[in-house]
Lab assay of single mutants.
Amino acid sequence: IDVRFTVNGLDVTVRVRTEEIAERVKELAKNGVDWREIQRIAEELNK
């Protein structure tokens, strides 16, 4: 599942395995978490 969001004007796409992880990623993006941090968290959750 590809999750797309915009952080500080940057369009970011993170690929995740499940809808649940996708929701977590969207939540982080909404809360203004840095995209590199979101990427790292997504990689952890995908394991």
Rank of each mutant, 00 (worst) to 15 (best):
23 E>N: 13
28 L>F: 06
46 N>M: 03
32 G>E: 06
31 N>L: 14
28 L>H: 04
16 V>F: 03
21 I>E: 04
2 D>L: 14
25 V>D: 00
35 W>Q: 04
44 E>W: 10
14 V>M: 12
8 N>T: 04
46 N>P: 02
16 V>I: 02
19 E>N: 11
30 K>G: 08
13 T>Q: 07
30 K>V: 09
27 E>L: 13
13 T>Y: 12
10 L>P: 01
29 A>D: 03
29 A>Y: 15
9 G>T: 03
44 E>P: 01
27 E>N: 09
39 Q>W: 13
26 K>H: 07
41 I>C: 05
16 V>D: 00
23 E>M: 12
1 I>D: 02
16 V>M: 02
3 V>D: 01
9 G>S: 04
39 Q>E: 09
35 W>M: 10
35 W>D: 02
44 E>A: 08
13 T>G: 04
38 I>Q: 00
31 N>D: 12
37 E>F: 06
30 K>A: 14
33 V>W: 09
25 V>Q: 00
27 E>T: 11
40 R>Q: 09
41 I>K: 04
42 A>N: 01
24 R>P: 00
40 R>F: 07
2 D>R: 09
47 K>Y: 12
8 N>K: 06
15 R>Q: 08
10 L>V: 15
13 T>V: 15
11 D>I: 15
6 T>I: 12
43 E>N: 10
37 E>N: 07
3 V>W: 02
28 L>R: 01
15 R>F: 12
38 I>M: 03
25 V>T: 01
11 D>N: 12
43 E>W: 09
45 L>R: 02
37 E>C: 09
27 E>K: 09
10 L>Q: 13
26 K>A: 08
30 K>H: 10
39 Q>G: 06
28 L>V: 02
34 D>R: 08
39 Q>N: 07
45 L>A: 05
12 V>N: 02
38 I>W: 03
19 E>G: 08
13 T>R: 05
44 E>F: 10
10 L>H: 14
22 A>C: 04
45 L>P: 01
13 T>P: 01
30 K>L: 12
23 E>H: 12
46 N>A: 04
12 V>T: 04
13 T>S: 12
35 W>F: 14
26 K>L: 15
21 I>C: 02
42 A>C: 05
10 L>W: 08
47 K>Q: 14
38 I>E: 00
36 R>E: 14
22 A>L: 05
37 E>Y: 08
15 R>I: 08
43 E>L: 09
18 T>Q: 02
25 V>G: 00
46 N>Q: 03
18 T>A: 03
40 R>D: 05
23 E>F: 12
26 K>P: 00
5 F>S: 01
36 R>L: 14
44 E>Q: 08
30 K>D: 09
15 R>E: 05
6 T>M: 11
39 Q>D: 04
25 V>S: 00
16 V>P: 00
8 N>R: 06
31 N>G: 07
27 E>A: 12
42 A>W: 03
2 D>A: 10
44 E>T: 07
36 R>F: 12
12 V>P: 00
22 A>N: 01
15 R>A: 06
1 I>G: 03
10 L>K: 14
13 T>E: 06
24 R>F: 11
35 W>V: 14
18 T>V: 02
44 E>G: 05
11 D>W: 15
9 G>A: 03
37 E>L: 10
30 K>T: 10
17 R>Y: 13
44 E>I: 10
10 L>Y: 13
1 I>V: 08
9 G>L: 03
12 V>D: 01
29 A>G: 05
29 A>L: 12
37 E>D: 10
2 D>T: 13
9 G>C: 05
23 E>C: 06
5 F>E: 01
1 I>R: 06
16 V>Q: 00
3 V>P: 01
14 V>L: 14
20 E>W: 15
19 E>H: 14
13 T>I: 15
15 R>G: 04
9 G>R: 02
6 T>H: 12
3 V>S: 01
13 T>A: 07
47 K>I: 14
18 T>G: 03
6 T>Q: 12
43 E>I: 10
33 V>T: 10
19 E>S: 13
42 A>I: 12
4 R>E: 08
42 A>T: 06
17 R>V: 15
42 A>S: 06
45 L>S: 04
7 V>D: 06
42 A>P: 00
37 E>H: 06
31 N>Y: 08
22 A>D: 00
4 R>V: 14
18 T>Y: 03
31 N>V: 08
23 E>A: 12
17 R>M: 15
40 R>I: 08
24 R>A: 11
41 I>F: 08
40 R>H: 07
36 R>Q: 14
25 V>H: 00
39 Q>Y: 13
36 R>I: 14
8 N>I: 03
7 V>G: 04
31 N>E: 12
26 K>W: 11
15 R>C: 10
29 A>I: 15
40 R>E: 07
4 R>S: 11
39 Q>A: 10
2 D>P: 07
4 R>A: 09
23 E>I: 12
13 T>N: 07
32 G>Y: 06
35 W>I: 15
25 V>W: 01
22 A>M: 06
17 R>A: 15
41 I>G: 01
8 N>F: 04
14 V>Y: 06
